[in-house]
């Protein structure tokens, strides 16, 4: 039942939290696991957190639908899976919309409140905060320093409208390959590259095949911590406050974990003589950003265009 909790009492609730990330990843051990420990340490809250990492509750889009219907209480979601319900959130995933994670968090802290309220009205879910996931970069069979280097390479992008628009904006030939078949497809040469944050690329072993990493950092990867309104309706105010505070406090620690883990993987890559790491300052960022801006200024219309331009203006 969805009867509101009586004033001052903390109802006993077991919250189910889902994520696509496996147990080995920072967003698990420096994210949802920390959240569980800190919430359960406050015994008077009467909250327990039941963790389902590694897509155990289904793929991203299906889990988000579960959050909307109240079948999942909390989930970690990228913008693209939620964009079918709230198209504007896809704009946050546009290539080079944000310069870096500092720019992203600055924007969230200044404009997030209105944006998340609008999101809440459209989806009946509440974004508590965002946790860093890593900058998306290319790993391919060849180094990529400037947009022209993408020509002649088939790069796998996730098959959603925003990611495919990113491919076009950067001048890449996107190929559609289901994630289940990606490793084999890269190995057999069906595609010659893919884009993901460094940590995710390493975790999924794509770096076993692709020996050139180019730190284009073309997209800020974040996971929004999104809660079902059906769940919030059942919670007392102290419970909601404690949950919001815990999620917000973890943001900085989680970011440090992701940065450390990224640096650890990169150090390994740099030390490996069979690999090339094209560093950030070796990338023609101006050329990529110029190309992406020219594309998105034409691609977006209406509210989406206004949002995109306001993000770029705050850069």
């Amino acid at each position: 039942g969805n009867t509101p909790a009586p004033e001052g009492a903390n109802p006993t609730l077991a919250l189910k939290i889902g994520s696509s990330q496996p147990e080995t990843q920072p967003n698990f051990h420096c994210g949802m696991k920390l959240l569980k420990e800190r919430i359960e340490a406050q015994a008077e809250l009467n909250l327990t957190i039941d963790m389902f990492p590694n897509s155990q509750l289904g793929p991203d889009a299906e889990r988000f639908a579960g959050v909307q219907s109240g079948d999942i209480d909390i989930d970690l979601q990228g913008g693209s899976a939620m964009s079918t319900a709230f198209p504007k959130i896809g704009v946050l995933d546009a290539a080079y919309a944000f310069n870096d994670i500092d720019h992203f968090f600055k924007w969230v802290d200044q404009n997030g409140k209105d944006f998340f309220t609008e999101f809440n009205t459209a989806t009946n879910t509440t974004i508590l905060d965002a946790w860093y996931f890593g900058m998306r970069t290319f790993t391919a069979t060849k180094p990529i320093r400037k947009p022209e280097d993408l020509a002649g390479l088939k790069i796998r992008f996730p098959n959603t409208p925003q990611f495919l628009a990113n491919a076009e904006a950067l001048g890449a030939n996107a190929v559609a390959i289901a994630v289940e078949e990606l490793y084999l497809a890269l190995q057999q040469g069906v595609a010659q590259g893919q884009e993901n944050p460094v940590v995710a690329t390493h975790a999924q072993k794509f770096d076993e095949i692709l020996k050139s990493a180019s730190l284009t950092n073309h997209q800020v990867g974040v996971h929004f911590v999104v809660v079902s309104d059906k769940t919030l309706d059942k919670m007392s105010q102290p419970q909601k406050d404690a949950l919001t505070k815990a999620v917000h406090d973890i943001r900085a620690e989680n970011r440090k974990c992701v940065d450390d883990e990224t640096e650890k993987v990169l150090t390994g890559w740099r030390a490996d003589s069979t690999r090339t790491v094209v560093e950030i300052d070796q990338i023609d960022r101006a050329a990529f950003i110029g190309k992406a801006e020219a594309f998105f200024n034409k691609h977006y219309t209406g509210d989406n265009l206004k949002l995109y331009q306001s993000i770029r203006a705050s850069a």
Partner: peptide, 18 residues
Amino acid sequence: WQVVSRFVPALNWPGVGE
């Protein structure tokens, strides 16, 4: 179509998988 479109980029259409 998905197989062919990898060799004939003009046929590339993200809707086929769906």
